[in-house]
Design a protein around this nucleic acid. Structure first.
Lengths: 219, 219
DNA sequence: CGAATTATTGAAACATGTCAAGGATCGTGG
DNA sequence: CCACGATCCTTGACATGTTTCAATAATTCG
């Protein structure tokens, strides 16, 4: 009928969560040290149905968390970048896929049990919940321009540079994150360009020219 | 209809627990007993910016969790019914509103600190996160018919009766939960009626005639 | 019973999706 | 280093689902 997801998935999915920066050192300190694994572009870090347990720290690159409908439409619920932790799930098995975007280095954090660990994880989980609810507002109540503005503002806040954004993911991933099509993403980028709000040095590198205008659009 | 202030034992409400069924008794056992408060239709149980801390158990009635955009658009991120627990937030202050729908009895659960409490809360938070992600898929990738079907299927699974649904909330709340307008909700109800998938005894009472068809639509 | 609220239905406008073509970019091998 | 194919991105024209605006009907409540 309607809304078609851009990306037809071959198979995998992952977990969920967002990280709380403050708690990350605590978690890492309590984890048993593990080597960093490299995941090639598109490869699954974990998948739906797989047993959950460890957390994952992104050392470099990016990760997407996604879920599919029966007919292959895809929703990306979150992106994770260097320094961020993901992999939360209900104790038991994963309900989503976690996949590398353009190649990523991932460190596994095998958590010891204990009160401190539980507190740190709770804090992370609650933070993720808050982010998830914010994203529901974007998905349910914002138009395409507002969605993309919100996405860009989020990226500026999570990355080092205030002005320059290097998009790790292709348009189709942005589309599936925002609940639109990749064509719409492309068109909105065009509008933001002609409005002099952003400038594009290349398809993957965005320069923020007017962060106030962008913030206003984002809500 | 109203079960006024009669405390329902956890075991008795376990059947319609939306959150992790197993953990609710644990939480209640660890909470210091508090009286049940009544919140009139539309009144706030807590609001944005307010300090978070306790959890809340719905004794009767229903609750909506919502957030507004700057220009007044609203997104409801979750409903909670009798026997369910809500009030999770990042430690600190609430980022959303919790409001009574049509009058609700709420018991405050003031949690002790400790490992068991943290584990139980973590479990609840992770479950909530999984639900949030599922709802993102609905908001971002499903059309109006699929959205409403998913909503009805969810209700049948959370309420006692398999066939009869008593909608606690008005059409506008359903609309704001599903990210559509109330007119669209009404029109989709009409389609489901003419398709013989549901029947409406009144605007608030829905009879499921073909749960398989509904489940198929929901995905 | 009447007023206020809530729900339904219709017609038209609009945003976004769909389909299609062309252009840019990237990586690889000659 | 260039050429080539594959992938990714952009843009246009048109179709369509949903919103918007408006009017009527049903329900609730005092």
């Amino acid at each position: 009928m309607l809304i078609q997801s851009n990306y037809r998935h071959p198979a995998a999915v992952a977990a969920n969560m967002h990280f709380q920066v403050d708690e990350t050192p605590t978690l890492i300190a309590q984890a048993r040290p593990c080597a960093v694994s490299f995941y090639a572009d598109g490869s699954a870090i974990y998948g739906q149905g797989q047993e959950a347990g460890p957390l994952y720290l992104v050392e470099f690159g990016a990760v997407r968390i996604c879920r599919l409908t029966a007919d292959g439409r895809r929703q990306i619920s979150a992106f994770y970048f260097a320094g961020e932790v993901f992999g939360f799930e209900s104790a038991g098995e994963h309900h989503f896929f976690a996949e590398s975007i353009g190649g990523a280095g991932i460190r596994v954090l095998r958590m010891a049990h204990g009160e401190h660990t539980a507190d740190a994880m709770l804090s992370l989980a609650l933070h993720g919940l808050t982010r998830a609810q914010q994203h529901m507002l974007v998905l349910g109540r914002q138009n395409a321009v507002e969605k993309l503005a919100a996405f860009l503002v989020d990226l500026t806040q999570r990355q080092e540079s205030e002005k320059l954004i290097n998009l790790a993911m292709p348009r189709v991933d942005i589309a599936d994150y925002l609940g639109v099509t990749l064509e719409t993403v492309s068109r909105v980028f065009g509008k933001l360009k002609t409005s002099r709000i952003i400038r594009m040095n290349s398809a993957k590198q965005i320069e923020i020219l007017d962060i106030d205008a962008l913030t206003d659009l984002a809500d």
